[in-house]
């Protein structure tokens, strides 16, 4: 009996130990990586810029729902159309605690400034949160209501037709070049700092047309000051049902602006998994979904390899467009 008891006890101890170990090692495997200090959320724009507003919205959502054990704090690196932010991320000493919100300058700035030595594909693919869309806008006073009338008026005005946009070789410039080529126009492209200022130029009748994002023109559009003629998208936008796509009009051209969150090059796999999980949760919040609807944003959540594939594709598209524009050598 004694022996049996001993045996049972030994067995018990053994089972206990094993299960203890199992519990410990299991916990080890399950103990996901978590940030150990505040996460730097790098913004390629100054305080109040487009990317900055986005970063602060995301920060607020994370804080409101307590999605991260450590705070996510925006850090502004506005220099050189993203150059400063990209180089800062590339050289970051603690890549596990550095993420960045990016737009399409993520491709165009490294392409235009090869000396920076930045490769977009080296960044950690956390999440594409949305794609912003572009439309062609005119002032209501112009009386123009469709693309045909627009082409007629712009053709007649020739080089006097002012298209306002956001900086040379920016997204707006690419779209203007497309319109000039597709319809045989000779519009004059005048760059401004930021889409908000561009929108104001049109509303104040200082420019003849723009290719703003919906969010930039929405206020003026709702006040009846500006009109959307057509969209550079695959399908008509829910907010602008009456504006056809350029595809419908026979010009196969779509263009989106990514709104993605990336990790610093060299981010560990565990950290990447944490941030991917974090932004999946942010994406699902009602705040983010409302924001998407209100700003007429498109594009689903893309993460990991799917996001890298998307970047590869977009990077090529931008390279070709910049070569065509003469901004870079092929």
């Amino acid at each position: 009996m004694k022996a049996t008891l001993k045996k049972v006890m030994a067995l018990g101890v053994a089972v206990g130990l094993v299960s203890g170990f199992a519990a410990v090692s299991g916990k080890d495997a399950q103990a996901a990586w978590e940030p150990k200090k505040p996460v730097q959320f790098v913004v390629m724009a100054g305080k109040g810029g487009g990317a900055d507003k986005l970063a602060r919205l995301i920060q607020s959502i994370i804080e409101k729902h307590k999605l991260s054990p450590k705070p996510v704090t925006p850090v502004n690196k506005p220099g050189g159309s993203g150059a400063e932010a990209l180089v800062y991320m590339k050289n970051h000493k603690d890549p596990d605690h550095a993420i960045m919100v990016t737009l399409n300058s993520f491709y165009t700035t490294p392409l235009r400034q090869p000396r920076l030595g930045v490769d977009p594909l080296a960044f950690a693919p956390i999440a594409r949160m949305a794609e912003d869309t572009f439309l062609l806008w005119v002032n209501k006073d112009s009386g123009i209501t469709n693309v045909d009338e627009f082409v007629k008026a712009a053709k007649a005005a020739g080089n006097k037709w002012v298209m306002a946009g956001t900086g040379k070789a920016s997204e707006d410039n690419l779209l203007t070049d497309f319109l000039n080529a597709a319809y045989g126009l000779n519009m004059k492209y005048v760059p401004y700092k930021g889409g908000g200022k561009v929108a104001k130029q049109l509303a104040g009748n200082h420019a003849n047309s723009t290719v703003n994002n919906p969010s930039e023109q929405l206020g003026f559009y709702e006040a009846g000051k500006t009109v959307a003629l057509a969209a550079f998208t695959d399908n008509r936008l829910p907010l602008f049902k009456s504006a056809p796509t350029f595809k419908e009009l026979g010009k196969d051209f779509v263009y989106y602006m990514q709104r993605s969150v990336v990790g610093a090059p060299g981010m560990s796999k565990d950290a990447l998994a944490f941030y991917q999980g974090l932004f999946k949760k942010v994406f699902a919040t009602s705040e983010w979904q409302t924001y998407r609807t209100k700003k007429s944003l498109q594009g689903d959540l893309l993460q990991g390899d799917a996001l890298v594939d998307y970047w590869k594709r977009e990077n090529e598209v931008h390279r070709k467009m910049l070569v065509k524009m003469g901004a870079i050598k092929g």
């Binding site: 100054g46 305080k47 109040g48 810029g49 900055d52 507003k53 602060r56 919205l57 607020s60 908000g196 200022k197 929108a199 104001k200 509303a203 929405l218 206020g219 003026f220 709702e222 006040a223 000051k225 705040e287 409302t290 924001y291 209100k294």
Partner: peptide, 27 residues
Amino acid sequence: TLGIPGSPTTAVLLGGMVIWGLQPGPR
């Protein structure tokens, strides 16, 4: 009234209004 910030501070405020669900602009 226009949704255009006149200074950097109002630009941040504008961002805040969007989060609170207010649409600045003529309406």
